[in-house]
Design a binder for these strands. Structure first.
Length: 213
DNA sequence: ACATTAAGTGATT
DNA sequence: AATCACTTAATGT
């Protein structure tokens, strides 16, 4: 097993005091999750809150038919705002989460949430800041859907994806992209072709190289 | 060689 | 921008 204390300190040490770090280490459950794994599904009850140490998680809205739409990504140092409201309100999750890369995280039992809010100022600040950041990202997602045309959305999607994986070579299919953007594969293929002709990307089977970052 | 899956394209709404 | 219908290309068995 890896030394999770040092991981914790590296990612959250500048935010939390030692006491809190120690307590997190004591009650938190350290987990490694492989790439492309469902972490939370719509309708599930959430029993613990994740602190992301490494990797990226895709957060998406999903309806009962499995129709989906990507909202935003979580990266290291983040936590999921939905779990905050779910933990406090005891409601079912209204979003789904899938690991985009291999992910390392620490699960905090939900009982500790409220306790730490009162006990540690740094925890309170972290939760508030995190909530704020997620709301901002949600607004950005809404703007993207409402004001950007499909071709712009697609290019933004590719850039975001390259960003979070730190790799300009994206391994995915047109079908997967169309699912994430909630459009059809044919549309994605056409627009990707256009982007390639504009010299912004290079297409291969099962992968896309982003050129204009 | 054949089947399967990914990607490209014209035509229509 | 979505859908249909079809083609072509790549890959697995």
């Amino acid at each position: 097993m890896l030394d999770d204390k040092s991981h914790l300190q590296a990612n959250f040490g500048y935010l939390f005091e030692d006491d809190l770090i120690n307590e997190i280490q004591k009650v938190g459950i350290y987990k490694t999750i492989p790439k492309n794994t469902a972490i939370i599904d719509v309708g599930e009850y959430i029993k613990s809150m994740p602190l992301l140490l490494k990797g990226a998680i895709k957060i998406l809205r999903e309806d009962e038919n499995g129709e989906e739409l990507v909202l935003y990504y979580l990266e290291k140092g983040d936590t999921c705002a939905m779990t905050l409201s779910c933990c406090l309100g005891q409601t079912k999750s209204k979003i789904a989460a899938i690991s985009e890369t291999e992910v390392e995280l620490i699960l905090i039992p939900k009982e500790k949430m409220g306790e730490w809010l009162a006990k540690y100022k740094t925890w309170q600040a972290f939760i508030l800041q995190s909530y704020h950041a997620r709301v901002d990202e949600l607004l950005e997602a809404i703007d993207t859907i409402a004001f950007l045309k499909m071709d712009e959305r697609l290019f933004k999607y590719l850039k975001d994806k390259a960003m979070i994986t730190h790799d300009d070579l994206i391994n995915t299919t047109h079908k997967e992209i169309s699912d994430d953007l909630h459009t059809s594969r044919v549309v994605v293929s056409r627009l990707l072709k256009k982007l390639e002709n504009e010299g912004k990307i290079k297409l291969h089977r099962n992968s896309i190289k982003v050129i204009a970052l």
